[in-house]
Nucleic acid binder design. Structure first.
Lengths: 148, 148
DNA sequence: CAACAACAATTGTATGTACAAATGTAGGGT
DNA sequence: ACCCTACATTTGTACATACAATTGTTGTTG
């Protein structure tokens, strides 16, 4: 992606704003690919993230606030997000018996199955997005991103 | 930003998905800062982008489809975006006399003034976001981002 | 044990975004 | 001149997100 072709608003953009814009552009492109990849499964990127977090729990239920903390894109409305996964049968939800304020959410077997398929699809997508990167590039990029 | 602290969903995340998530996290952080910075001016990041593009036109009017092309985050709804800027008095809009399909949009003096203030505020924000980067880092980061 | 603050989740509302359909305009071919 | 296609914008609708207010629950303190 040649950022010069996209940033045409000024002749010379200083390095800092240029970097900021560049990241936004890259992020948008990634999002587009991810959304398109997940479209056949009829789940959003956010919903996918929730499923992935739930699988990471390895059977242990997660409550909403843990989900919120671990979500890549923070969102205020985890309730409605889980609602949609519930409708699709990918998660179960019940009130935590030890603390009835909390809600326990676990991923269902069906959820695990579709998640596996999504993983495969996303693997391909990631390779496509990162086709110009070798491992050294990726390490370097991650090191730089850690500076944020 | 230590991505390990945020990504707790799995013990070992392979390099590629890790990179993708990392970019999303960085982008979110940038967005939060940008939105907070622009909040006192009561404009969204998108609206700011439109104003910046219009200034880049140096007096020449821009029509909607040019705006759309140059917008960092593509959005389908430039009409309503311009509507809001119009209400605030930051832009003028009129039908293009030579081609009545087109709409010409120019930034007003008031728009230019507030834009200058926003620039100053965003300059500071950018420096804060990128405080851990020296010029060499930024060059390197941009080079890597160009690989996308 | 009653009052209160703190917590976890839900609901309401306003705003933002994506996608598709509709409106109005221009130009080309017959 | 008429029909058709392509273009530029607008409108409609469904969905996503941000922020604030509300509900229900827990534990603490007087």
């Amino acid at each position: 992606m040649k950022v010069e072709e996209i940033i045409k608003t000024a002749n010379e953009i200083p390095l800092k704003p240029r970097t900021i814009i560049h990241i936004a552009l890259v992020n948008n492109r990634i999002n587009e690919v991810m959304t398109a990849t997940l479209k056949p499964f009829e789940v959003s990127v956010q919903q996918f993230n929730v499923l992935r977090i739930l699988r990471g729990q390895q059977g242990k239920p997660a409550n909403l606030c843990t989900l919120n903390e671990r979500m890549v894109t923070k969102m205020s409305n985890t309730t409605r997000l889980v609602d949609k996964l519930l409708k699709k049968g990918y998660v179960n939800r019940c009130v935590c018996p030890s603390n009835r304020r909390k809600v326990e959410i676990v991923i269902t077997n069906e959820g695990l199955e579709v998640l596996e398929q999504m993983d495969k699809a996303l693997d391909k997508a990631h390779s496509t997005i990162l086709e110009n990167f070798d491992n050294r590039d990726l390490e370097q990029l991650n090191q730089l991103l850690d500076k944020f």
